[in-house]
Each structure stands twice: as structure tokens, then as C-alpha cells.
Design a protein around this nucleic acid. Structure first.
Lengths: 344, 344
DNA sequence: TTGTAGGCGTTATCAA
DNA sequence: TTGATAACGCCTACAA
């Protein structure tokens, strides 16, 4: 059952292949009648053009790829739908491509550009620790959305959309301090992390300092390397360990909602109530943080607006309207039931 | 910056294209030295073969695609990783392809087969309501994993892996009945659902009957159509409505963990405690059901084993070792803190 | 062990 | 408005 080719269709229609090609690709130079006739035959015979041959020959296509690193993150899953919608609204084709932890996103991107003749790329998640040189090898416009960047990057050579991880983390810790907390535990990224995790850690540190609180290394717990990063499981394991070590703290700030939930479970299991015995705060603003009981105080990232702007920048770049845009969205601290004011 | 082709590499190496092709494709007829030399040049110049040209020419490739419908389901996300690992273990290439709600999975599959010269397909999630004829148009082996099937399917013409949704649902409701519950609310799929949701509903109904309990239509609540299916949000909305209507029940069974969590939130918010005032049970065995407080009693699907067997069947089919295999795994009822025995 | 040449299915160029 | 034909980059008989 070898499938039909454009030649077969041309023969059936009694026209040249070019004409068939014109019909299926909505080219202008073709009469309405011919086109209708050809399309009818195409339908009837269930002909589908071969994409490989197409891409091989084509010089460009109207497609944008989203490269996602860390798909188990519910946060990203939400964004994907928004991206897809936005891209399809502009009559572009949307491709979702997963990048695995060990893969180099730039290499993957370049292959994809070649293969699919992409018009643009949206990087979602992950960290970029490449040299500028390497980034510049990318021949199509790209936007970094919620991508961690190592600090040595020259800020003006690329476009990105994210929140200010440092400031938002500071905001949360500042809030906890104002609530009267003096011993605030932090579930942080691994010590080697040089981007988002590092920024959130710095925000924590600075807030403590500004409140005249001593920074206590014992209270900072990096997530476990052998467990999935930012996961409930990880927050649970880390917190359990702290409890077993009898570390004292009146508040716990986890740099993701998932970890905050894992942490909450560990605390509740150990018989501590939230927020009476211990306040818990998360980060991201996942649905789950609302549905948890008690609801988790968190920093909500404006997912919809971030996705929207990412797409806007993408198309502006494609249409050469702008050179580069950096956007840091403000996030919102949502006070819920997992935190409370404490007395000295 | 037009990228290198196999011809460029051949020129640089001073050999013919065939030789380069042999080198990159691990063909036998090539001397070790030549191959090493060529591979070095390939590395240095960062040459990557053009997949379109490859697939266009190739008659077959060692790749298997996973077509997933409903990616927001955390349950599937877990499976994907397992599939990927299993497929790569066999030195096959793994492709993840998303199918959207409105798309016909068989059409998508057929296009993909053509385009990527697939060796096999794994369908994950969704419902299959196609005619047998249509299914038979698929020219490569396929396995249905956790795919809903409308009942008119002839059971022996395809391979699938799933749990027995009817029996497992029955198991849970039977359990609740034995706990002494007489008024058990059900958050079910929409009434039009003719597969998984329908089966779980039938299990509920039968269990009630076997316990001599009256079936009360008031207690069966289909999820909201305008909200995402099987979501926390959906469970929350449905339960809130029941509470407002003052429907009485001592236990609530939601046909997904996510909905069970949403339901729990609604109950807790309304001041009812779980399980004292109301027992709650879910379905799937997501991590979340454990981390929720109270932990949710649920039916755990043996994800790892299901993924494993799916892959095994896939390769057996490819290697023509078997014709078709149907596997219904037993799932496990996990008693946790959200359910309790009640007195008459 | 190596190289030459033809074709995979499509689109682009150019002439009719 | 149409059609013949040359690429696109690769793989693979077949010949050397």
C-alpha cells in the first residue's frame, strides 16, 4: 500500500504537478475552477503531501517550535496550551519539542531549524549557560521564556520573558519576616544551581539581612539530587530530614509549590499543624497550591500574560519590528491559609 | 549560513559520498581508518544529516511514536518517561506526539507513519470510537495503552494494556459500602462518555446494587463540560454545587484523584472534615493523592508495569512474535486517611 | 573497500 | 494561468 504522490494526483486530474502543487499550497496563480477540481480529487483519494519532500525543498515554512525542558512541571504544561493557541491564531504551525536534561538545547534547536525550516523558537524552562557565541549560532529569532540564565550574560543580546526571581523571593521572605518569623527555613535548589534557584536563594538571604536576621546555614536545605527536582517528593524528603534533625523554624519557604506541598505533608505527618506550629510558603502559583488544605501562600506568576507577551515578542522579532525585548513581570504574593503572624 | 551537506563532507575528506554515508550509518563495508577519519571531520564541522532527505529516501527507520491525548494528565506524563526509556533501551528512536482533542488519532498516526517511517505506535489516553475498518488502515503495529474503547469493538483485533475500569470502580464502591456508607456520591464523566467514564459509572452502580442500596440519581454528578475534564477545578465546582444543594452523602467517590482533591477542598472549605463528616475516595494513584492532607484513599494503577508491558507487546508485535495481546492489570485499592468506617 | 549515478516527492524557476 | 524540469540532501544499487 504505497501512498499516492503528487504525480498520481496530477495524472488523475490531467494537469501538471505544478498545478496540483499550486492548488494545495494556496498559490495565487491558479484558476478557481482548476483548483476546486484538484482539491476534490485530493479529498477523494485522501492524498496527503509528504512532509519530508516538502521540507527538503522548501526554503521556509510558517512554523514555530516550543522547546521545553522539564515537562513534568505543571507550570509549563499550562503555558504550552497558551503558546499553541497564540501561534495558531497567527496561522502558524506549532511544534512542541521536548528537550531532555542531558541535551544541549541550542544543538537541538539548530537541528530543528534545519529540519523544519522554522521561523522561530520559544525556549521554555531549563537553564542557559552557553557562551554568547553559541547562542548567536541560532539563525532564527528566539525568545527565552522562564529560562534560567547564568549571570555573565550580556543582557541586551536576546529576548526573554520571566519574573524577577530575586525580587519575588525577597518579597516572600520579607513578608514572612514582617509576620514575625525569625527562623525561616528554605528549601532551595542545589548549590551548583547558578540561575533561578540561585536568584531565589539570594532574595531569601537579602531579605533576612534587611530585617536584621542572622543567616543560618542550617536552615537552608538544597533539594535532593537523587530525586526529581522541584517535586513534591523532594520537598517531603528534605523536610522530613529537617524534622528528624530537630531543626527549629517557625516558617518554611520552598522555592516551588510542589515542594511546599511535600513539605506540608511532612510537617502534618509529624503532628505539626499549619500555620499554627509552622507557616509554609511556596512559589509559582499552581492550582494545586489553592486546592491543598490548608491553601498555600505563594507567589503567583502571571502565566497567561507571560505566554501572551512571549508570543508577541516572537512575532515582532519575526516581522523585524523590534530588535530585542526583555520583560520581567511582577508576580503576586497570594496570602492564604498556610502562613500566619506569630508573636515573639 | 547554509549548512553543510554530505557532499561537502565528502569533499573535505577526499572521498565519495557513499563512503561518508557508510560512516555515519554504521555500515559494515568500510575500513576502520576511513571511518574514523570521516567521523572526525563530521565532528569538527558539526555536520548533522538532514532528516528530511533521510526519511524521504529511507524505507524504514527504527522509530516508535507515542501519541498522547490529554497531556495535562499527570498520570500520562509519568508514563512517557517510562516509554522513552524502554524504547531507547532497544536502540529505537522515541518520538512523542501530541494529539489534540478535536483531532482524529488514526489520521494523525497515519501521517506520522508516512513521515517518519515509523515501526510502531503507542496510543496513550483518549478514546477510540473508530470503526474497525479505520483502525485497520494503520499499516504498522500499535498498542493501545489506557485508551478508552467503545464497547462494540471486537476484542481480538488489536492489542491493549489497561486496567479493568469497571472492576476497579466496583472495588472502590464495594469498599465504601463495607465501611458502612449508604449514601455515596459519585463525580463521574459526562453522560455521553461511552468508555472509561461509563465503565467506572457502571462499576459504581453494580456495587450499590449488590449491597442492596438504592441508586439515587441525585448523587451522581457528571463533571462540568465547560471545565477541563478530570481536573481539580472540576471536582471542586461539582462538589460545591452539591453542598449548596444540601445533598446528603457520607462518602464521595471521584473518578480521578484530581477531582477528589478538588472535592476535598470544597468539603473542607464548607467546614466539613474528612473523613469524620465525609469520606473521600479518588482514582488513579497519583503522587498528589498521597501528599494531600488527609491522604486520599484511591485506586492505584500499576503505571510502571503497564508501561513495561506496553513496550514489550510493541516489540513483540514488531518482531512478529505474537499476533495480539490484551492485558488488563489489577489495580490496588490504597486505604488512606480520607475514608473511615461509619455507624448506622 | 570505494565511487558514480539515479531517484525519493516536493517546490521553485522559467518559459510557454 | 499553466507545465516541464531542475534542484533539495540523502541512500543505495551497481560498477569499479
Amino acid at each position: 500500500m504505497t501512498s499516492l504522490t503528487i504525480i498520481d494526483i496530477a495524472k488523475i486530474c490531467g494537469v501538471g504537478v505544478t498545478t496540483v502543487s499550486r492548488a494545495i499550497n494556496n498559490h495565487p496563480d491558479i484558476s478557481v475552477d482548476t483548483k476546486a477540481m484538484i482539491m476534490k480529487v485530493v479529498q477523494e483519494n485522501n492524498y496527503v503531501p509528504n512532509n519530508n519532500a516538502r521540507n527538503l525543498k522548501r526554503t521556509a515554512s510558517k512554523t514555530i517550535a516550543v522547546l521545553i525542558k522539564g515537562m513534568n512541571n505543571p507550570f509549563f504544561i499550562q503555558m504550552i496550551d497558551l503558546f499553541e493557541k497564540g501561534i495558531k491564531d497567527q496561522k502558524y504551525t506549532f511544534i512542541l519539542h521536548r528537550v531532555y536534561e542531558h541535551q544541549d538545547e541550542i544543538d537541538v534547536a539548530n537541528e530543528l531549524v534545519k529540519e523544519k525550516k522554522l521561523k522561530g523558537i520559544i525556549f521554555l524552562g531549563g537553564y542557559l549557560s552557553h557562551s554568547q557565541d553559541k547562542l548567536e549560532k541560532l539563525t532564527v529569532p528566539y525568545v527565552l521564556c522562564t529560562v534560567g540564565l547564568s549571570s555573565e550574560f550580556d543582557t541586551y543580546n536576546y529576548s526573554y520573558v520571566s519574573i524577577d526571581d530575586y525580587a519575588e523571593s525577597y518579597k516572600m521572605v520579607d513578608y514572612l519576616c514582617r509576620q514575625g518569623h525569625k527562623r525561616i527555613a528554605l528549601i532551595s535548589a542545589s548549590m551548583e544551581d547558578r540561575s533561578i534557584g540561585q536568584l531565589r536563594f539570594q532574595g531569601y538571604k537579602q531579605a533576612l539581612e534587611d530585617h536584621g536576621l542572622l543567616f543560618d546555614q542550617q536552615l537552608v536545605r538544597p533539594m535532593k539530587r537523587h530525586l526529581e527536582t522541584y517535586s513534591m517528593e523532594n520537598g517531603y524528603a528534605v523536610t522530613k530530614e529537617m524534622i528528624e534533625e530537630n531543626i527549629e523554624f517557625t516558617a518554611l519557604f520552598a522555592i516551588s509549590d510542589s515542594m511546599a506541598i511535600g513539605a506540608s505533608k511532612a510537617l502534618l505527618e509529624a503532628g505539626r499543624s499549619i500555620p499554627e506550629d509552622c507557616s509554609v510558603a511556596g512559589f509559582d502559583g499552581l492550582d494545586m497550591s489553592f486546592y491543598y488544605h490548608p491553601s498555600i501562600t505563594t507567589i503567583r506568576q502571571p502565566i497567561a500574560r507571560m505566554a501572551e507577551e512571549t508570543i508577541k515578542i516572537m512575532f515582532d522579532l519575526i516581522n523585524k519590528k523590534v530588535t530585542h525585548t526583555q520583560l520581567k513581570f511582577p508576580a503576586e504574593l497570594i496570602e492564604r491559609d498556610s502562613t500566619r503572624i506569630i508573636q515573639d
